[in-house]
């Protein structure tokens, strides 16, 4: 069992990493998609994962809340620890993991229900206490969407624009009260203005949440993140992490030649 209660400050304050990846390799069947990964995620920071296509960024992100479990033939070696609890220990229930580590996907994927129902859905199935109207309003405010939709809560979420839909998906994830929010290229389907709104929102959310974002967009990583992990592909096509540092260091003073080539646009 995970010895952790949501919203207990003593653990968050404790002197350890919220997420720690220890010697992790991931496989699809016999193909090794990610190898020998070690990574420590800081709480209440935004960590960006960047790298060329096929380097395993999304695979790594989805490993954090065990979304890869649905992929046939996938398995993971090593440990991913959440407050020192191995998420891949046999007794851990992946459903419980996903309640604490939420996710926002590449393409906005609201349920074909009303705006209100979209936000309330996760809170309801997880038995989040409190008045549902209040929860919906509060999370929509947190997601900077309230003012735009407060008069249309009963309208279909699919009537919203792409950027609004994505903020709704963020609100929906927040309503479950996770500790970490994983974002898998959340702006890749959005226009530049909607993208900036999401980035501002991430900054505000990082006060209360730990955010890990995969992005193809290096400017986005540079603008919006505190830490950056650069991944690339080895000659055997396995994804490896080249460098992990503060975003400032990665973009101004990279240690590895491959990072430098990538961020200066010479590769990828």
């Amino acid at each position: 069992m995970i010895n952790y209660e949501p919203n207990t400050p003593n653990l968050s304050d404790a002197n350890h990493n919220i997420l720690e990846v220890k010697n992790v390799s991931m496989y699809y069947g016999s193909f090794r998609a990610v190898k020998d990964l070690n990574l420590k995620i800081q709480p209440n920071k935004i960590t960006a994962i960047i790298g060329p296509s096929g380097c395993g960024k999304s695979t790594v992100l989805r490993a954090f809340n065990r979304m890869n479990d649905f992929v046939r033939g996938y398995h993971l070696e090593g440990e991913i620890c959440f407050h020192n609890q191995n998420l891949y220990a046999p007794e851990v229930d992946p459903v419980q993991v996903r309640k604490m580590i939420g996710m926002v996907f590449q393409k906005p994927n609201p349920f074909p229900k009303s705006i209100y129902e979209n936000v309330a859905w996760g809170a309801r199935i997880n038995g989040i206490p409190g008045n549902m109207d209040d929860i919906v309003e509060q999370t929509l405010r947190q997601a900077a969407l309230w003012d735009e939709v407060k008069d249309d809560l009963r309208k279909s979420a699919l009537a919203l624009s792409g950027g609004q839909q994505q903020r709704l998906c963020i609100a929906r994830a927040l309503a479950v009260k996770p500790e970490i929010i994983l974002m898998d290229e959340p702006c890749s389907a959005l226009d530049p203005i909607a993208t900036l709104k999401i980035e501002d929102l991430m900054r505000e959310l990082s006060v209360n949440y730990t955010i890990i974002i995969v992005t193809h967009n290096m400017q986005q990583a540079a603008r919006a993140s505190d830490y950056t992990a650069f991944f690339t592909m080895d000659p055997d096509r396995a994804g490896v992490m080249v460098e992990f540092d503060t975003t400032t260091n990665i973009f101004t003073n990279p240690h590895d030649k491959r990072t430098e080539d990538y961020i200066s646009g010479r590769f990828g």
């Binding site: 419980q96 309640k99 939420g102 609201p110 349920f111």
Partner: peptide, 25 residues
């Protein structure tokens, strides 16, 4: 599949996903 992923990502079980997202859709 993206709708199922959305539900799973919110900590829904297979049953909750099937009955409350997939069947209504």
């Amino acid at each position: 599949r993206s709708l199922r992923e959305a539900a799973y990502g919110l900590g829904a079980t297979r049953l909750e996903t099937a009955v409350r997202v997939v069947v209504p859709a």
